[in-house]
């Protein structure tokens, strides 16, 4: 599955990076970037946690 960060919503609180550092990185511009094209099965749980923790609800799976 693919995951997306809505950059208009993201405020760079880096909760996503804490939950799934393999998938999200927050750069110096305080916006989270998705590092992987496809989220592998074993990382899905971590990404779900990132989605839950994101204070701005900026992260979503791409259908």
């Amino acid at each position: 599955m693919k995951v997306k960060v809505n950059t208009d919503m993201c405020e760079g609180h880096a909760k996503c990076q804490g939950a799934a550092p393999e998938v999200f990185r927050v750069g110096d511009d305080d916006v989270s970037v998705v590092l992987v094209e496809e989220v592998s099965k074993d990382l899905e749980e971590k990404v779900n946690r990132a989605i839950r923790l994101c204070p701005r609800q900026a992260i979503a799976w791409v259908k």
């Binding site: 405020e11 609180h13 880096a14 946690r49 923790l53 204070p55 701005r56 609800q57």
Partner: peptide, 19 residues
């Protein structure tokens, strides 16, 4: 761990100064 506290709130008004 994990420590998913909400001391800075959550959602639209999540603390601007948390970091």
């Amino acid at each position: 761990t994990p420590n998913d506290h909400l001391a800075f709130g959550i959602g639209e008004h999540f603390c601007l100064g948390s970091g």
